[in-house]
Simulated scan of single mutants.
Amino acid sequence: MKKILIVDDEFDMRQLLRLYLQQESYLVEDAEDGRKACDKIEKDDFDLIILDVMMPIMDGWKTLKNIRGISEVPVIMLTAKGSVQDKVTGLTIGADDYLVKPFDEAELMARVKALLRRAQSNFKNDEVLKYKGLVLNLSAREVTYQGSIIHLTQTEFDLLRVFIEHMGKVLTREQLVELIWGIEFMGEDRTVDSHIKNLREKLKAAGIDHSLVKTVWGIGYKVE
């Protein structure tokens, strides 16, 4: 059974999310602030985290940064702010998806199931992909370059995998969304740009040519 952590300072919201998730037979734990959430994540393994942005003590942005320091667990951000910049901020820090309050139960559950399905399919895949010194272990979800580990989020890892699997082919944003999130994804395809920016920065920090993932203007992206 999949275990999901809800992080939100509002008791009623935690209870509502718990109800939705338990109806789908997920194991659920919750935390009322970012500090308690990070303590739980250090002590236990979770398959997914639903994280609110506007919280006292430690807001969602800072909590996400701390989470990414200890875990690559998939994270869905909940925000009352619907601006593009807020969405970009969450994706840049390392969120895998976002949802604006108030949200529909069906949409939330579709996103939860999509992220969990991606993680499960990747876990079952034992292949290893190699490209110009990069080694992707698909079962361990681990990327190394010249023997050193590159820490990627689930979405960044999936992007790199898809590019290498489709080497030489230009992929549009719409194709990347379908390959990674699935056709049920209800976000914006510009979400891809934020994740690719993060991926490029991490590859560059590891000593890899920043142009590994090339922009094909007006179309999309590709790896030669």
Rank of each mutant, 00 (worst) to 15 (best):
K3E: 14
I4M: 15
L5P: 00
I6F: 13
D9K: 06
D9E: 14
D12G: 07
R14F: 12
R14C: 13
Q15L: 14
L19W: 14
L19H: 06
Y20L: 05
Y20E: 03
Q22I: 02
Q23W: 05
V28G: 11
D30M: 10
E32W: 05
G34Y: 05
A37S: 07
D39E: 07
I41K: 04
E42T: 13
D45M: 01
D45V: 01
D47F: 13
L48S: 11
I49E: 06
I49N: 07
I50R: 09
I50K: 12
D52E: 13
V53C: 09
K62A: 00
K65A: 12
N66L: 05
N66F: 10
G69A: 06
I70H: 11
E72Y: 05
V73F: 15
V73R: 15
M77Q: 09
L78N: 07
K81G: 05
S83W: 00
Q85C: 05
Q85G: 03
D86S: 13
K87I: 01
V88P: 04
A95L: 07
A95F: 08
D96G: 13
D96Y: 12
D97W: 11
P102V: 08
F103L: 02
E107A: 14
L108D: 11
L108V: 06
M109Y: 11
A110R: 03
A110Y: 07
V112E: 06
A114Y: 15
R117N: 07
S121R: 09
F123C: 09
D126W: 09
V128C: 11
L129Q: 02
K130L: 00
G133H: 13
L134F: 06
L134W: 07
V135P: 15
L136V: 06
L136H: 01
N137A: 10
L138R: 02
V143N: 05
T144I: 05
T144Q: 04
Y145G: 09
Q146R: 03
Q146G: 03
I149K: 15
I149W: 12
I149Y: 14
I149D: 15
H151A: 08
Q154C: 10
T155S: 04
T155G: 06
F157D: 02
D158G: 10
L159F: 07
L160H: 01
L160K: 00
L160Y: 01
V162T: 01
H166A: 01
K169W: 02
K169R: 01
V170I: 05
V170F: 08
L171T: 00
T172W: 00
Q175D: 03
L176W: 00
L176D: 01
L179N: 08
G182K: 09
I183P: 02
E184G: 04
M186P: 12
M186G: 14
E188S: 14
D189H: 13
V192M: 12
S194T: 07
H195A: 06
H195T: 06
N198A: 13
L199N: 09
E201D: 13
E201T: 04
E201A: 12
K204A: 10
I208R: 07
L212G: 09
V213K: 04
V213M: 04
V216K: 08
G218D: 10
G220E: 06
Y221D: 12
V223W: 06
